[in-house]
Design a protein around this nucleic acid. Structure first.
Length: 404
DNA sequence: TCTGGGGTCCTAGGACCC
DNA sequence: TCTGGGGTCCTAGGACCC
C-alpha cells in the first residue's frame, strides 16, 4: 500500500446536473440529465458558448466551450438552459460540507472538483479505501441528488486522471502499477496540462500517447519546453508529490471583464463600462481585504485579437475611484480605436497588508480614510439590497449588458 | 460557425543598478 | 568611451485550467 491515498472527486456535468436537481426540486417532471441538453449563455448577447452538456447531448458530439450555434446544428432539439451561478455555489458548498463530515483533509480545487487526502482515515477504516469512496459517492447521490466520479491513487495527478475515466457515477483507481495499462495508451491530449498548443508540438515530435511522452527523454523535453517540459514528463510518469492543500490560499489576481452585446466604438461608452468593472473589482477587493499593486486593462476587438496594458502603482489600493483613474489612463494609452468586443479591468500583485500611511494626521490620510468609509458604506448597501439600488448616475444606461 | 468569465503560472525582453 | 556580466523589477503576452 502506498503511503498516501488521495481521492479526486469530480461532479458529473456539474452545471447541468445542478440545473437538473434544481428543476426537479421545483416540481419539473423532466430530468435534464436524461435528454440532450446544455447550459449555455445568451447568443444574442454574444455569450453563446456551451458551459456544460448532458450525456445524451455528448452523444451528438456537442462539446463544452463550443458556440451554441454549432451545438444546435449537431442536435436541433437540444434543450438550452441559461446558467445560474448562485445555485452552483450552493450545490458546491453542500458537497464540501458533506465531505467535511468524513474528513477535514479536503482541497477545493474548483467549483465542481476537490481533492481529499484519506490517508488519515486508515486508523478508523483500515485499508478499505474503496468503501470510503463508495460511501461518499452514495451519500452525495442520496442527500444532494447528483452523481460524482471518484479517482483514487497515491497522488493528485493520478487521482485526477482516474476520475476522468468512464463516467458518470463511477469509482476508478489508478495506482502507479496500473499506469501503463490504464493511462499510457490514452492520447497525449488527455493528459492534465496538455492543451491545444502543446498537443500540436508533441504531434510534430511524434509523441501521440501519454506513454510516448512518459518514455521520451526528460532532459530533452526540459530543454525544449522549460519548466513545463519537466512537469509534463513527471505527470506522464505519475510523479507528483504536491500536498492536498486544506488552507485556502490568498488570491493573487482579481479581475472582471465583459463581452458586450455590440461593439464599442467610442471612448465615452468604453469609460462607462470601465467604471462599472472597476466598481465590481473594488468591491471584491474590499470584501476580501486585499489591496492591488498593479492595475490593468484588457481589450478584445471584433477580430478577436487581444491586447492589454498594466501599470504598477505607487500605493496599493482597493478604492474604486483610484482603480478607475488608472484604468482609464491605461485605456487611453492602449486603445487602438478598433471596435471593442470585450473589455476587462484586472488587478494583480494583491496584498492583504494595508498600505503604510506615513502620517496618520496629515490631511491626505484623512481624505483617504473618508474615501474608504464611503466605499465601505456603498458596499454595505449593495450587500443588503443588491447592486440595482445603488448605481452611479453615469451607469444607469448600461443596464442589461452588465452583471450588476 | 462564431467563439464566456475568472483564475494561475511561465517566459521573454527591456530598464536599471552594481 | 566602450566593454562585459549578473541580478532584479516591470510589463506584455500566452498557455492552461475549470
Amino acid at each position: 500500500m502506498p503511503k498516501r491515498i488521495i481521492f479526486h472527486i469530480d461532479v458529473n456535468s456539474a452545471f447541468l446536473s445542478w440545473e437538473a436537481v434544481n428543476q426537479l426540486k421545483k416540481g419539473s417532471n423532466i430530468d435534464l440529465r436524461t435528454i440532450p441538453s446544455i447550459v449555455a449563455g445568451d447568443q444574442s448577447r454574444r455569450h453563446g458558448v456551451v458551459l456544460a452538456r448532458s450525456i445524451p447531448a455528448k452523444k451528438f458530439g456537442i462539446i463544452t466551450g463550443e458556440p451554441v450555434i454549432k451545438a444546435v446544428r449537431k442536435c436541433p432539439n437540444v434543450t438550452i438552459v441559461p446558467p445560474s451561478h448562485g445555485i452552483y455555489t450552493q450545490c458546491s458548498n453542500a458537497m464540501t460540507e458533506l465531505i467535511m463530515t468524513i474528513t477535514p483533509d479536503i482541497e477545493k480545487y474548483s467549483i465542481d472538483e476537490c481533492f481529499v487526502d484519506v490517508s488519515g482515515l486508515r486508523l478508523k477504516y483500515g485499508n478499505d479505501f474503496l468503501s470510503i469512496a463508495r460511501t461518499i459517492k452514495s451519500r452525495i447521490k442520496k442527500e444532494l441528488g447528483f452523481t460524482v466520479n471518484i479517482g483514487i491513487s497515491e497522488n493528485k495527478i493520478l487521482a485526477k486522471m482516474a476520475s476522468d475515466f468512464k463516467k458518470p457515477d463511477r469509482i476508478h483507481t489508478l495506482f502507479r502499477d496500473e499506469m501503463k495499462e490504464k493511462m499510457w495508451p490514452l492520447p497525449v491530449s488527455e493528459l492534465f496540462m496538455v492543451g491545444k498548443a502543446s498537443y500540436k508540438k508533441f504531434k510534430l515530435m511524434g509523441i501521440e500517447t501519454i506513454g510516448d511522452l512518459a518514455l521520451s527523454d526528460a532532459s530533452l523535453l526540459e530543454e525544449r519546453f522549460g519548466k513545463y517540459g519537466r512537469m509534463i514528463w513527471e505527470y506522464a510518469n505519475g510523479i507528483d508529490d504536491s500536498p492536498v492543500q486544506t488552507e485556502e490560499s490568498e488570491a493573487k489576481d482579481l479581475s472582471n471583464e465583459i463581452t458586450i452585446g455590440f461593439d464599442i466604438t467610442d471612448k465615452e461608452t468604453a469609460r462607462l463600462y470601465i467604471l462599472s468593472l472597476c466598481e465590481t473589482v473594488g468591491m471584491r477587493l474590499r470584501k476580501s481585504g486585499l489591496y492591488a499593486n498593479v492595475i490593468g486593462i484588457n481589450i478584445k476587438n471584433s477580430e478577436f485579437e487581444s491586447y492589454s496594458k498594466r501599470k504598477k502603482i505607487q500605493t496599493p489600493t482597493q478604492n474604486t475611484n483610484e482603480i478607475f483613474a488608472v484604468a482609464t489612463e491605461l485605456f487611453e494609452q492602449v486603445w487602438k480605436r478598433d471596435p471593442i468586443r470585450l473589455i476587462g479591468v484586472a488587478t494583480t500583485q494583491l496584498q492583504s497588508e494595508p498600505p503604510i500611511q506615513l502620517n496618520m494626521f496629515d490631511s491626505l490620510s484623512k481624505q483617504s480614510s473618508n474615501v474608504k468609509k464611503l466605499d465601505e458604506s456603498i458596499d454595505k448597501i449593495r450587500e443588503k439590497y443588491g447592486n440595482k439600488y445603488l448605481v452611479r448616475g453615469s451607469l444607469l444606461n448600461l443596464n442589461k449588458d452588465c452583471n450588476s
